[in-house]
Design a protein around this nucleic acid. Structure first.
Lengths: 156, 156
DNA sequence: CTGGGGCATCCGCCTCAGCGGACGACACCG
DNA sequence: CGGTGTCGTCCGCTGAGGCGGATGCCCCAG
């Protein structure tokens, strides 16, 4: 019946996985996890935007997959991820692995540092990297999960 | 918080402006600027995804405003902006003003620095900020257009 | 054993994203 | 002048996004 919507492990069908993953992340305990009805109600209450249980299930089961701007924003807002999470698989995996970048960029000073670091020479960057890493040790923070991906965000 | 959607003069109807703005940015010369038909064809060719002239006009004129994931990605890809541009007004104005953050984050080392800076104390951040600013002066780069936004990325 | 509540799944409906095609209005060219 | 091309604008349709409501299953209170 279905012509060829199977086996696209690669690119598009990911949306269902993402939603399920976020749901699992939000409710790690399988036992106390609410069903789609309660979840939808929660989303409605927390974001103020509409969201139906049926549709949530359809998304999680991969039945509907081309979301609308509104829905996209609603979900992103509720799950606390940047909206791009649902659009860009690269961003998704990065956020998925740690969420650190997005969180880091919420700090205005960190953002300023990132902006100012752009364009500096490699040697200077290495020096700065050493400094900030050292600062981490001094302040007894963890080794800061670095994004291990070697790719760039978006080609032009 | 604004549960009610205020008169469409405000935040929502922005999409039309954004598209027009991007179009103007891409074709600064009013005379040689192609119409919606040509533009749509160009988008189709460049992204490989479908896009009709009529719909493009409907978007630019504010007639349709709740885009779909696919359309969103297509437009973002064509105009060379992150998809969030269309979703988040804060991101929009930032990207609009300079596009610097996105570019900066393409450098792996800059990204690492940003990641490691997260969580450090305010004092340490100030110190690092001073260092990197100083490094800029030494390497004779400009004062690094800092995003002048005063707020945080995403409210809640 | 019986009833109520939450669950996943399904069906049918309605709105609207997205498009094809057509219409006047210009502008250029023979 | 009348063609030919592109422009902005519009109407009407199709398909899918999004939802309300119904179904059967399982679990716990009574």
């Amino acid at each position: 019946m279905d012509p060829e919507q199977r086996a696209d492990t690669g690119a598009e069908g990911r949306l269902a996985e993402k939603i399920n993953h976020l749901r699992d992340r939000l409710y790690p305990d399988k036992a106390s996890r609410p069903g789609y009805a309660k979840l939808a109600a929660q989303i409605r209450e927390q974001t103020g935007k509409p969201m139906s249980a049926t549709y949530l299930w359809e998304l999680a089961s991969g039945r509907k997959r081309n979301l609308t701007q509104d829905t996209l924003v609603t979900l992103a807002e509720f799950f606390g991820v940047p909206a791009e999470y649902f659009l860009d698989d690269v961003v998704a995996s990065r956020v998925d692995a740690q969420l650190d970048l997005a969180i880091a960029l919420r700090n205005q000073k960190v953002r300023s540092i990132a902006l100012r670091a752009e364009g500096l020479s490699d040697d200077t960057l290495d020096a700065l990297l050493a400094m900030v890493t050292e600062a981490r040790r001094i302040e007894r923070l963890g080794p800061a999960t670095d994004a291990g991906d070697g790719g760039q965000a978006r080609g032009e």
